[in-house]
């Protein structure tokens, strides 16, 4: 029989929080594991009554949704936390945000309604800036990508090089002109309104003090196995149109959520919870 620790079992989960957070500026270089450690410490500093699992090595009840790759920024990352006591949402949001380094920002907290959050994260909306790449060149590459029935790309994983199709997952691929933009404010706050607002108005759309052409890819990618990432789309553009950006591209995830296949618009995954229970922070839909 398995040994169990002495004493009563840990208190049960009485409230579940769904949290949208952002990874901005230089902190986009944090990996998923880096964020996990920082977030668990922030929960402690902010005195959030997190529930723990039973056993000799109790673990906090936290589940993370698919993470943006290291080096990419995001305005729409999600994590869910189980609590052993009920809390007010806004004080917890503010305390958690204060307990994290600027650049890891807690945007919104809702209380979870029934239904798994992961099931609602069907697709991601990415903006990929390509400094040094002209709009015409990018448009031609995007065109070639979209007409291809399949675009095989390779990615180096823990288990070696993996080859898969990057085309099938792409629900939308547009090109915008970012060359005439003003200075970038990566940490700009404000509603992140993927459905009701032009993508160029979103944070992360502009680059700091750069001259010259800068095409911006506006991409919606369905989640799958493996999940197609901004890198993979760029690999695909290289293979179909020899598009090789002269400078490292910069990607930001603008939204994650349910995908409207007809319009290619990514919806708000917390809308259901917010309507059902309540929220604090900046909703990601208008």
């Amino acid at each position: 029989m398995a040994r169990t620790p002495e004493g009563p079992p840990p208190p049960p989960v009485v409230q579940r929080l769904r949290i949208r957070w952002a990874k901005r500026g230089r902190l986009r270089f944090t990996s998923h594991r880096d964020f996990q450690r920082a977030f668990e410490r922030a929960l402690r500093r902010a005195n959030v009554p997190v529930a723990y699992s039973a056993g000799f090595s109790p673990h906090p009840k936290i589940s993370y949704a698919g993470a943006a790759p290291t080096g990419t920024a995001s305005e729409a990352e999600y994590v869910e936390v189980g609590l052993q006591e009920r809390v007010e949402l806004e004080p917890v949001r503010a305390a958690l945000d204060a307990a994290l380094a600027p650049g890891l920002d807690i945007l919104e907290i809702v209380e979870a309604a029934p239904g798994a959050l992961a099931d609602r994260l069907e697709a991601s909306h990415w903006r990929i800036e390509l400094p040094g790449v002209g709009v015409g060149v990018a448009e031609a590459a995007a065109e070639a990508f979209l007409v291809a029935p399949e675009v095989k790309v390779e990615r180096l994983t823990k288990d070696g090089v993996r080859t898969f199709d990057a085309r099938g997952a792409v629900a939308r691929l547009g090109v915008l002109d970012g060359s005439a933009r003003g200075p970038l404010d990566d940490s700009a706050r404000g509603p992140l309104d993927d459905s009701a607002r032009g993508p160029l108005d979103a944070p992360g759309a502009q680059r700091e003090g750069r001259e010259g052409p800068c095409a911006i890819l506006d991409v919606v990618v369905r989640h799958g196995i493996p999940t197609v990432r901004p890198d993979d789309v760029l690999s695909g553009l290289r293979s179909v149109a020899d598009l090789v950006p002269p400078e490292p591209p910069r990607a930001v995830r603008l939204a994650q959520g349910p995908l409207d296949e007809a319009t290619g618009i990514v919806g708000d995954p917390l809308a259901h919870d917010r309507d059902a229970v309540g929220a604090s922070g900046i909703p990601s839909t208008a």
Binding site: R26, L27, F29, T30, S31, D34, A38, R41, T70, G71, A99, L100, A101, P102, G103, P248
Partner: peptide
């Protein structure tokens, strides 16, 4: 930083 291992070690921003 996009071309190196563990770039987070070079960005600062520690609590």
């Amino acid at each position: 930083l996009t071309q190196v291992q563990k770039p987070v070690q070079y960005v600062g921003g520690e609590l």
